[in-house]
Amino acid sequence: MSAATDLSASSLPQSSQLWLSQIWAIMRIELKKALWMRRSVWIYLIALGPAAVIGLHAINSPLGRYCNISDDTTILATIFQIFYLRGVIFFGCMGLFTWLFRGDVVEKSLHYYFLSPVRREVLATGKFLAGLAGSWIIFGGSVFLSFAIMYGHFGRAGADFVFHGPGFGHLLAYLGVTLLACLGYGSVFLALSLAFKNPILPGAVVLLWETFHAVLPSLLQKFSVIFYLKQLCPVSVAPTGIMALFTVVAEPVSAPVAVIGLILLSTAVLACACLQIRRTEISYLVD
């Protein structure tokens, strides 16, 4: 064996180039796990839930016989904000992102990463990006399917709405908001999975925070992911029922501020996760 000589520094990429290649290698490993592991089946099922409901609606009302595009646009917006953002994407991200590190701990394989020449921050970033890509493929795909079914069942009128009306812009906005939701919730759940052995309880606290953020003072609302996401949705949905009574109307923010705010929030949370992973030791026995 020629020691480490033929793997000397000169034959390997340096610094940022090395980090990029490592992030890519980590993403390949993790994306494969996230998309194909048996454990992800329930995530696919909940992701397909809203599309299945819209599919039933389409079957009941072929070619929009008993409905109209305007009403269905509002229904789709409600489904997106209530079911997708607060249900499917929230819980799906919880399942995907908390498992990125916890999965390796449970399978007792995290040490292989820790024994590689990879900075822990690079590892966390690679895993996070893999989770982000995986979750966007799953949930973005589901949103696209829901959108296609919702407007597809109107036939030519639906096609006109999408390609000659505001529909295509709505689709891009929904896919963008889905990506930002995965970014925001993903970073929170990744950090929680590193800070807590069982992230379910803190996850429930986050769920309460996100659900009832509207009744919080205006300043605190800015520390929730859903606050920014709502601002970016193409069709607004006003709160109804008892929530409407307690809602504190926070000063709205512009789309660029909402995007930047969410990215900053996620970056801050990820930075905390990186600090945590730097301190992490391998002690599978106590896990």
């Binding site: 390997l12 590689s116 599978y284």
Partner: peptide
Amino acid sequence: PEEFFRHVGYCTQF
């Protein structure tokens, strides 16, 4: 780690 684990290999008991 980039430099350290270029030189070190560890076959654990796990």
